[in-house]
Design a protein around this nucleic acid. Structure first.
Length: 504
RNA sequence: GGCGCCGUAGCUCAGUUGGUGAGAGCGCUCGACUCAUAAUCGAGAGGUCGACAGUUCAAAUCUGUCCGGCGCUACCA
């Protein structure tokens, strides 16, 4: 029994929820659900990032105040995640008072420790963009690449975080903690960044006021990135509830896309060090979903694909399972409507759903609709034991696709087993009972293991096979023990759990 | 330029610390079955593991070079 605190990044409110976000959030949800099955105390956090110039500007365009705009757009994420059946325990918004308090507390601490200093920032500033550009990014003769207008050389006082001072400590952390960043490929990238040497970073802006003010210098607000990272700490009580923070922080796991690896594996740990926070996070990095396939390539970009459109076609669980099963956590992978459809039909309609149907029918015909108890010596028992071990190991390594593959082997093997025994040809009696009891037991266990990806349908199947209670309240590894299917319970037939779908 | 990732069957991908004749799913071909959502089961075809060289008794798995695809290099998962 342990504790697991899983986080998504907070999503920038200007974005509309898309499959890229969904993939990230679903991965956290599934891993957290796995930990819930293990009986761990779990906290799953997600939320929205709402400060910064871009939000301010798009609020203006929409004719709203920044907070009205943030309220509205944050709601889109909240709704999308509810529709995806994410079981998040909290939804944080960076505009909340608790977050302001935490940010100010953490950075004040870093300031008091001497890790933040004032310096002059100078650079090429585009008035149109209200942003600085590096010399290399400019076009023609010092012109903004977007507005094609000359930029101005500006000088501004800024607060800087002494990131460079943490080079050694970060190196030590990596050396002492082999699993701090996974998978290894991304850990190497983080090490590469470290090897190149760290420079101090500017963490405040005086040009805008839509942000969290610097406690010792109210004319400045913290730059959006540095306020954003702190959300993870805010949510478990940093600055407001030390006991809660101490309880959860040691078991924090961040799930992030590879584009923000630098912030989560270098900057953020350094900020924590600067504020004397003892425990550092574990970071799980994944790649991008690349848009492939006929139907969706028209939309051009994965950021244009809304989860709700796919849920409309495949159902929540269909979407959840296909996304989790098809995309190895780590590398970039192809995302296509065709692949989604294929995964849905194969795993859910043909294998899982159809197995539930055929078992229920045979039980109805040969066992009077009463599910018999399994055979303790069934050959399926060993199959299940192996599959469970592999499933558990894969979830532990944060590899949902591998875990689900292992779980589905139980389903495939049960189909094979039925085919081999042909209970539908037998006369009613002990022989049929033994076979069907085994099938029901395999189904029972597979249903528990599949719950992280198909939570809603798993509950339906659970009831179909006559199990009391819910899947959600099952506890592993006990629930994966062969032989717990009670027997003597009513098995119901019904409409297909996952109707087979055709390309439209 | 610097750092890093990737290139394994038609497709999408697995392949721990190098070691029985290289795998899965999908797709395809043939066959079986007909309880089930035209679902299921079996058999089969299909790969010089990007190229070249090297280390080794032994490499998809280590080293080097090259070719090809890509990411990061201060703010979109």
């Amino acid at each position: 029994m342990g504790r697991y605190f899983g986080t998504t990044p907070i999503f920038y409110v200007n974005d509309a929820p898309h499959v890229g976000h969904a993939y990230n959030a679903l991965s956290v949800d599934a891993v957290c659900r796995w930990h819930r099955l293990l009986g761990d105390e779990v906290r799953f956090l997600t939320g929205t990032d709402e400060h910064g110039l871009k939000v301010m500007r798009s609020a203006q365009e929409a004719g709203r105040s920044p907070i009205e705009h943030a309220d509205h757009n944050s709601g889109r994420f909240r709704d999308a995640w509810a529709e995806m059946n994410l079981a998040n325990d909290d939804f944080i918004r960076t505009t909340e008072p608790r977050h302001h308090a935490a940010v100010q507390a953490m950075l004040q601490r870093a300031y008091d420790n001497g890790h933040i200093y004032q310096a002059t920032y100078s650079g090429w500033y585009c008035v149109g963009c209200e942003a600085y550009y590096a010399e290399d990014d400019l076009i023609d003769d010092h012109a903004c690449p977007i507005h094609k207008r000359p930029v101005e050389h500006m000088v501004e006082d800024n607060w800087f975080f002494r990131l460079s001072a943490f080079q050694k400590q970060l190196e030590d952390w990596f050396a002492a903690t082999p699993g701090n960043v996974t998978p290894d490929g991304f850990r190497n990238e983080a090490l590469g960044i470290l090897r190149q040497g760290l420079e101090d970073v500017s963490i405040s802006r005086s040009s805008i006021d839509w942000g969290i003010s610097v406690p010792w210098d109210p004319d400045h607000v913290f730059y959006v990135w540095y306020d954003a990272l702190i959300n993870y700490a805010t949510a478990v009580g940093y600055g407001t509830d030390q006991e809660q923070f101490d309880t959860w922080w040691p078991s924090v796991h961040h799930f992030v896309g590879k584009d923000i690896l630098r912030f989560h594996t270098i900057y953020w740990p350094a900020m924590l060090m600067a504020a004397d926070v003892e425990h550092l996070p574990t970071v799980h990095v994944h790649g991008f979903l690349l848009l492939g396939g006929e139907k969706m390539s028209k939309t051009g970009n994965v950021t244009k694909v809304a989860p709700s459109d796919l849920i409309a076609d495949f159902g929540v669980d269909g979407f959840r399972h296909a996304v989790l099963r098809d995309h190895p956590f780590g590398p970039d992978s192809e995302f296509s409507y065709e692949a989604l459809l294929s995964r849905y039909n194969v795993d859910l309609a043909n294998n899982y759903g159809n197995l539930v149907s055929r078992v229920a029918t045979v039980v109805a015909k040969k066992c009077n609709g009463i599910g018999p108890a399994p055979d303790p010596g069934s050959p399926l028992a060993a199959v299940v034991a192996t599959a469970f071990a592999e499933t558990a190991a894969a979830w532990e390594r944060t590899q949902p696709s591998v875990a689900l593959e292992a779980t589905w082997r139980i389903i495939r093997q049960t189909n094979e087993y039925l085919q081999e025994r042909e209970p539908w040809k037998m006369d009613a009696g002990p022989d049929v009972d033994a076979v069907m009891g085994d099938a029901l037991e395999a189904l029972r266990i597979a249903t528990v293991l599949a719950w992280p990806s198909i939570p809603e349908t798993a509950e339906l199947a659970w009831k179909r096979i006559g199990m009391p209670g819910t899947v959600a309240e099952q506890r592993l590894p006990a629930a994966a023990q062969w032989g717990l299917y009670p027997g003597g319970v009513t098995v119901e037939t019904g409409d297909p759990l996952f109707p087979r779908l055709k390309l439209t």
